[in-house]
Design a protein around this nucleic acid. Structure first.
Lengths: 187, 187
DNA sequence: AAAAATTTGTGCTAAATATCACACGCTGAA
DNA sequence: TTCAGCGTGTGATATTTAGCACAAATTTTT
């Protein structure tokens, strides 16, 4: 059976088994339990995680204590604070497990190394970065254009599984509305 | 005197004069007048523009006819619809000149070619893509966290020149508030 | 310079959303 | 089982923002 990470990378770039083995040798496996964190505000994100199993959130707190969710993470997604990871600067955000998680991670150093050693991976990450940018662009578009109700419906349509796995108050934080307003959107 | 594009690229990657000459040979110059467009909804963005002089907006219309601004462009910035450019798909957005503009552009084909011919440029664009992503991330953060007034103040602080060059109603469209609300934010 | 179009400010009203309060059901720990 | 804590729905009210109307100021065009 094909390794799920190989399958994931091959959506962008074809790999021989040797190449994948080489890539995988730059990763480590880690398990985390619900409520544990991967990254806390103020730390430098020195790892990028690939989610084998589980569900996570990247988020931050407003001064008032209100929580805002930047990104959810589920199986086959990557998660880290890219600003902190790319610039190797202090992170503004936190990343927590919403469920028990199984993760693969690559350190900043290993990623730099792998990028240099293997041009295919440079191309893979470049493409991933481009697609990540497009996704963010579209989220901004949606925040500008769509009403709360519309954003709710779009998210439900795009990630129906998410609604079965995470509390609605987190969905509200992601959409940028209060939990009470979210609760009233369906009526 | 150093070419401004060379100066711009060298903020990320050092170049010899020969290298820059080679890079520049992949670009063309174009002038556009105020109100002329670079890209219209439905077209495929086959060029990426570097702004030598002038001011532009990338934007789209809601069904209701409301205009939303995704990005402003000024001297030394790049502008295109990256979703359309990267995927070579039909664009959802328009790009117009707000002032008379002088631009350098590289076609999709030339950029692909240059990326392959010159590894330095692959690294340059990879880095630019990463930073672009970070900027979008921070805009989302700001849309979630900050009030209209705060977003206004932040923009004013970051791009004071913009306020002297573009009408306030466009600033409002960028911030995601109505022009009336923007007009009342200062009081 | 005159005319036309655009931009901006502001009063008024309606709509959307936040906030506070409280009730109820579910879950996990003692 | 019992109890505390969390998640969720919902009423009441306050706040924010949008939308419309219109006038004044500014810019652009002729």
């Amino acid at each position: 059976m094909k390794h799920p990470l190989k399958q994931h990378i091959e959506e962008i770039i074809k790999l021989t088994d040797e190449e994948f083995k080489f890539i995988l040798s730059h990763f480590e496996t880690i398990k985390k339990r619900k409520h544990q964190y991967l990254l806390q505000k103020g730390e430098i994100a020195d790892k990028e995680y690939w989610i084998v199993k589980g569900c996570l959130k990247s988020y931050f707190f407003e001064e008032s204590g209100k929580e805002h969710i930047l990104q959810f993470g589920m199986e086959n997604w990557w998660i880290t604070d890219y600003e902190s990871f790319v610039k190797q600067s202090k992170s503004k955000i936190n990343i927590d497990c919403i469920e028990d998680c199984e993760l693969l991670y690559i350190t900043f150093e290993n990623r730099e190394k792998l990028t240099k050693e293997m041009h295919k991976m440079e191309r893979f990450w470049a493409k991933k970065s481009k697609f990540g940018r497009i996704a963010l662009q579209n989220r901004i578009l949606s925040l500008l254009k769509n009403s709360s109700k519309e954003r709710y419906d779009l998210l439900l349509e795009q990630y129906p599984k998410l609604f079965q796995r995470v509390p609605k108050k987190l969905i509200a934080s992601y959409l940028g509305v209060s939990r009470e307003t979210l609760s009233r959107l369906n009526s």
